[in-house]
Design a protein around this nucleic acid. Sequence first.
RNA 1: GGGCCGGUAGCUCAGUCGGUAGAGCAUCUGACUUUUAAUCAGGUGGCCGAGGGUUCGAGUCCCUCCCGGCUCACCA
Length: 578
Amino acid sequence: MPCPLHRAREGRGGRGRPQRQPVSDGPAGVARRAVAIAVAVRFNGALDPAPHAPSWPPPPAIRHPRFVTCIASSRALMDDHNEQRRIRLEKVQQLRSLGVNPYPYRFEASHTAGRLHAEGEALIASGAEVSLAGRLVAVRRQGKAAFCHVKDAHRRLQVYVRQDEVGAAAYGVFGLCDLGDYLGFRGAMMRTRTGELTLRARTVEVLAKAVRPLPVPKVEVKDGHEVVHDEVRDVEFRYRQRYADLALNDGVAEVFLRRAQVIQTLREYLLGQGFLEVETPILQVLYGGAAATPFTTHHKALDLPLYLRIATELYLKRLVAGGFDRVFEIGKNFRNEGIDRSHNPEFTMVEFYQAYADYTDMMAHFEAIWERCALALHGATRFTYQGTAIDVAPPWRRLTMKQAIGDLGGVDVDALSDEALQRLLGERGWEIAGGYRRGLAVARLFEELCEARLIQPTFVTDFPKESTPLCKAHRGDPALVERFEPFVCGFEVGNAYSELNDPVVQRELFEEQVARRRHGDQEAHPYDADFLRAMEYGMPPMGGVGLGVDRMVMLLTDQYSLRDVLFFPTMRPEAEGA
RNA sequence: GGGCCGGUAGCUCAGUCGGUAGAGCAUCUGACUUUUAAUCAGGUGGCCGAGGGUUCGAGUCCCUCCCGGCUCACCA
């Protein structure tokens, strides 16, 4: 079943500064000023999109004031006469005047920086020529020679460039290079006097000139470990300009590499268990599978209102009815809700469904996935999250919801009358959308009293039947359903059921949901007649799971906020450009 | 949406009691062919988030708004 949530944020971008006096007054000042002017003219002429842009009818959204602001600011970008950018644009022009293309087409790199580090000794011994492409992230110039660091795929390698080896012309070109530029080198590996593995360049070439200053932090190696100075920390900057954040902060890139590892581990596990990976519609005529407010959109040709899915559940179950006994989908869900450190409007969830299984089988899968992902990242089932030691080794603790409320909340639900329960909720200001029902009150009590206190991995089982319209009744208690939610570090990280497959009961539950909606529960489930039809043809018993991928990654990588495991968290547009 | 905190140079940050906007790094000029936060010397660079107000005078005080963070509410 459906599940978890997520969210994120960003940073603001600096804009350009007013134009200042071009160029310095050195001997070449005048000539350079002329070049600067030519550059400015060409640049503006080529890039200013405004006045002559084709005027196709803009989509309505573009008329939103915020978008107008964005367009205005992107024009400001073109008019930006920020000194550092201007100087770099001049350098682009200078390269061209030297016959150098600042944006050539390709470069053959024989090695990555990582491989050069790994094979350093052998390469030094053989004296073989190697080539490397990457981004300039540090330069120490000393007249006719320079040391620099080049980064590719988040690994740094020192490169030594000497005028007498690369030639005066190429050295001059190198002199026009700035931090952030992409360069290609050929040469042989060596070790410097201080012992650092270094590529001694025989050739240098520009692969792509950067025209905006990249705020590369300085890296000091002290007592064997790296100390980073002047690192860009502004979170708004980092979230909005993730491309820069990733290029600058290796720790950030590392988090996303780990995210990819988690998803790969997850996929391999499910494939290994015989699940088929499938894709189902994101654009849906009717949403369902979770209690949430959907995003709406519209198909023009069909003149059809559509929803972005809030869960994959209902389509995956249709596939099981179609004979695919084990299916899973890893994909984005969209929920039109608030944003905080554990919620983003779009988030990644994996759902999987297994015919002839129940929710206890799903617990085993759930534990296995978390265990394998923890092992993949940490080599152990233990890790720490924000200072707290967590161990995801199976089996996880199991608590029924009533036990949880009793043990963690100190409330004996069965001893409370409906009146007492309502009074308790009323005192705390905990309202039930769509009107009081005992089961919903119990579930609310659990959320308020227990969730945040479930630190070590725990399955909370046996929810009140009113908590969902898609789950099968508990085989031992008709007031309950066979549902569990796993909690880690106080976060709900999934949701699972013994799936309801009785079409008569399903119809009744849908009807109840419709009634609740009429009474004010905006998130009540819509009536899905097609899903019901699929069930009427016969749907095998099955267990189903929804697992929040972003939250799992966040916990396994010790990130405080979901935004830190999303490349581009949802944010308001920048008020001013960048 | 409420509360609290923040927005000053490309980056990281100072800025007292309301009195001419600062530092380090980056950038520019010069020196330097094994440096590594390279070093040395000299420069440039600010709509102090935006708009109003108070004041002789506002980065600083007041109001409104924008963007962000935390938190509460909402919400799986």
